[in-house]
Simulated scan of single mutants.
Amino acid sequence: MIEFSLLSALLAGLLGGVHCVGMCGGIVAAFSFRADGSTPPFRLHLAYNLGRVTSYVLFGAIAGALGASLKLASFLPAQTMLYVLAQLVMVLLGLYLAGFNQWVLVFERAGGAVWKRVRPLFQKLLPVKSLPQAVLAGMAWGWLPCGLVYSILVSALAAGSATSGAALMLAFGLGTLPNLLGMGLFARQIQPFMQQRWVRRLAGLTVAGFGVWGLAVLVMRYL
């Protein structure tokens, strides 16, 4: 079932680009344009995203370890309950991306307090002038409160181990790369397309479908 979860996380990151445009557009714009009007080299955009995905992997490892500790503590139904919760959150995430509800924003508000502490450190790293600085800025960017990230973290919690949780968030992070790298290089061109209603609906309902399928797989195991 881990292969299915990895695929779900990868595609959620890819299709979640409709959310990334709105959530991370300002940060990507800050990375994409210099004071002299020039465009940063591609290697800097790679470094930003390397740092961001590194933070995601760290979060996934912590969440996976926490989920594993619940299992080791003899909470027999805990792993199944976490799996069901992860699939339900995936459905809610898809409906949010499609524009049908705002429930996932609860996760973003919960992370706001942490971002208030990280944001000053992030701002001190701007403007970015070197690759190490870009990686650090990207790692700070990974702490931005994001309902999409937090929703996938619930799946990492249900992954059963630190390694599996880290792998899940790595898959998700890799899924976000095409959109966020594309925004960095073609910010003005890609944003109007990603914000079209039909694009949002198609992407969101596809992500919700992963959650529904995950629940169906669980039900079929017990039939």
Rank of each mutant, 00 (worst) to 15 (best):
L181H: 03
L44H: 09
G99R: 09
V104S: 02
L88D: 00
R197S: 15
V219K: 14
I2H: 10
L95M: 13
G204L: 06
L180K: 12
N179H: 10
I2Y: 06
F107C: 10
G142D: 02
F172M: 14
N49G: 09
M81V: 10
A113V: 12
R117C: 06
A68L: 04
P178I: 05
A137R: 02
F31C: 02
V135K: 02
S164D: 07
I62T: 09
M1D: 11
L181W: 05
N49E: 13
L58G: 04
F100P: 04
A98G: 02
L50D: 06
R34L: 15
G142I: 05
V154Y: 01
G22A: 02
G51F: 03
W143C: 10
S69H: 11
G112V: 02
A166Q: 01
F193N: 11
A86E: 00
L66D: 10
A208Q: 03
A140M: 06
T54L: 12
Y96K: 14
F210Q: 07
M220P: 08
R43S: 15
N101H: 15
M183R: 00
V91F: 07
R188D: 15
K129M: 11
L11V: 13
M1L: 11
G184K: 05
S8C: 10
V199S: 10
F59W: 08
L126Y: 03
F107V: 07
M139G: 10
A156K: 01
G17Q: 08
L205Q: 10
L92F: 13
A68V: 04
W213G: 08
G64S: 04
L97I: 14
G60V: 00
Y222P: 09
R119D: 15
Y83F: 13
G22C: 01
E108Y: 08
L215W: 03
R117Y: 06
A47S: 01
L131I: 05
L177G: 07
Y96G: 14
A78V: 01
T39P: 06
V114T: 11
A158S: 12
S130V: 00
V57N: 06
P132A: 09
V199N: 10
A166K: 03
A30W: 11
I152G: 01
R109H: 14
P41Q: 03
L46C: 13
G60S: 01
S161Q: 01
V114Q: 07
W213S: 14
G182Y: 03
A110K: 06
A110N: 07
Q87E: 12
A29I: 11
E108L: 07
M90F: 05
V53R: 01
L170W: 01
L157K: 05
V21W: 03
F193G: 08
A29C: 11
M81E: 07
L218N: 11
G17C: 06
M169R: 04
S38T: 11
G22P: 02
R43Q: 15
A9C: 06
S164G: 07
E3T: 11
W141C: 15
V106M: 13
V21M: 10
L6V: 00
V21K: 08
L95V: 07
A171S: 10
L215P: 01
Y222D: 15
A29H: 14
A63G: 09
T54R: 04
V207H: 08
L177A: 06
Q87D: 12
V104Y: 01
L105S: 13
S5Q: 13
L95N: 09
R117Q: 11
L82D: 02
A47D: 03
I27M: 15
I2W: 03
F122R: 13
P178Y: 05
G25E: 03
M1K: 11
V89Q: 03
